[in-house]
Every structure is written in C-alpha cells, then in structure tokens.
Computed example of a mutant assay.
Amino acid sequence: MINLDDPLIHGYLLRLIGEDGITLIRNMPEGEVTDEEICNTLNPLRTISKAADDKVKKLNIEIKAAKEKGEETKKLEKDVKAAEKEAETAKANLGDEKEITLNTVRKILFILYENKFTICHRERDANSGWLTFRWMLNMDGIYHQIEREKKKLYRNLVKRKEYEDNNIFYVCPQNCLRLVFDEATETEFLCPLCGEDLVFQDNEQFKELLDQRIEEFEETA
C-alpha cells in the first residue's frame, strides 16, 4: 500500500482527484468491489440511516398487505414503530458526516482508471443484461506516473522561459489581455477589447521565478 501521507504522493493525488478521492483510496475495501459498496463504506452513517428507512417502508408494505387479507397486524405495527425509532436515531446520528455521493465515487474511480490506478472488471447479468463494474486499486505505478508528470512540467517551464526571454510584452491596464510586440503593433498599441492604451510589461521578476522553479527541478532530477 502506498503512503498517502508522503507529501509528493499526497500533493499529486490532491490535484488529480481531490480530498474526496484521497478519502476513497484510504477507505477502499479489499478485493474487487462495486461502486455502490465503496460509496456505502465512505458513508457508513448514511448507509445505516438508509437501511433503517428501507426497513420502515418494507414493514409498512407488509402491514398494508396484511390488512387487505384481513390478517392481524398488531405485531407488524409494533415492529414498524420500533423501526421508525431506529430510523430517527440513525438520522440524528448523521451529525457532520460529509456525504460522498455515488456520482462522485464513480467520477473518482474513472479518473483513477484513466491513469491506470484501478483495475475494472465488467460483469453482465445474463437475464437483465445489466452491467456491473467491479473495481480494485492498483497504485503500483504511481511513482512512475509522478516522474512523468515532473518531466512534463519541467519541459513546459523551459518552453515558457524561452517564450518570455524571446518576446517583449504589452498589457492592457484593465487586465483584458497580454500581447507580444508584433501583436501590439497590429492593434496600434490599443487594447482590441476595451480601447485602452497598451503599456509595456516588465517580465523580469516572472522570469526569475521561472528560473528558480527550473533550478529546483534540476536539483532534484
């Protein structure tokens, strides 16, 4: 199991799937599980509350059916009152539990799948044709993926530094846009959006920041 408290891994996953995604990984059941089973694991109190509500509904249906048949319902009515009390208690216990919805779970799982961090098997019911997706974590390649992302970011930083070095920039004082010198001359140094006079932008400080980031990457390479 990967160390989710490792700053490098935590930061990477936070950008990829957010805090809910990290919570999902921390609490993912062992083996192959469905998205609904994962959702129930992430929302234990809500799962209990739903089960209690379902029990009340089931008992009410049984009472209605018994009455239609002319059968005794006292025991069922006693059971439904007890079930309603359980449901109320379950709702009261929800407290501040943050809900992670089934749609959120599915979105996180598919993002992980796209990045090869989950294995997904599909099962089709022979009678209904309904597809069931079964998921299992596979985070073995995360360090390789992080290294690829770092190299990609490094290349982008170098390209951006070259772009900043090789151009002179003019900006709109209303923050409409930023143009290189040739583009600014085409608009006669007027903002094409609001008509304000464009002003020269000194990008030396930004280039220093880029140099610093590039140096940091090279030191850890």
Rank of each mutant, 00 (worst) to 15 (best):
Q145F: 11
V105M: 02
A92V: 14
Y163K: 00
L157Y: 11
Y154E: 10
T132S: 07
Y143P: 14
I119H: 11
K150T: 10
G129N: 02
K152T: 10
I100Y: 02
L109V: 10
L94R: 12
L137K: 06
R124V: 04
K91P: 15
N166G: 11
G141Y: 01
D125P: 15
N138P: 15
V158K: 00
E99C: 13
A126C: 06
L153N: 07
N166V: 00
A126S: 04
R124H: 05
D125L: 04
K151Y: 08
N167H: 07
Y113W: 08
L157D: 04
T118F: 02
V105H: 02
Y170L: 00
N115F: 07
E147S: 06
R160T: 03
G129K: 01
E149F: 09
N93V: 12
Y113C: 05
N103L: 04
M139E: 05
T101E: 02
E97G: 13
E149D: 13
S128I: 03
Y170V: 08
L157T: 04
L109P: 15
I108A: 00
I146M: 02
M136N: 15
V158L: 00
E114A: 03
Q145A: 11
A92E: 15
F133T: 10
L131V: 08
L137C: 15
A92N: 15
N138W: 06
A126V: 05
E162C: 04
T89K: 13
N127K: 09
D165Y: 01
E114V: 09
K107R: 10
V158N: 00
A92M: 13
I111N: 09
M136W: 12
L131C: 11
I100K: 02
E114Y: 07
A90P: 15
K107A: 05
I111G: 14
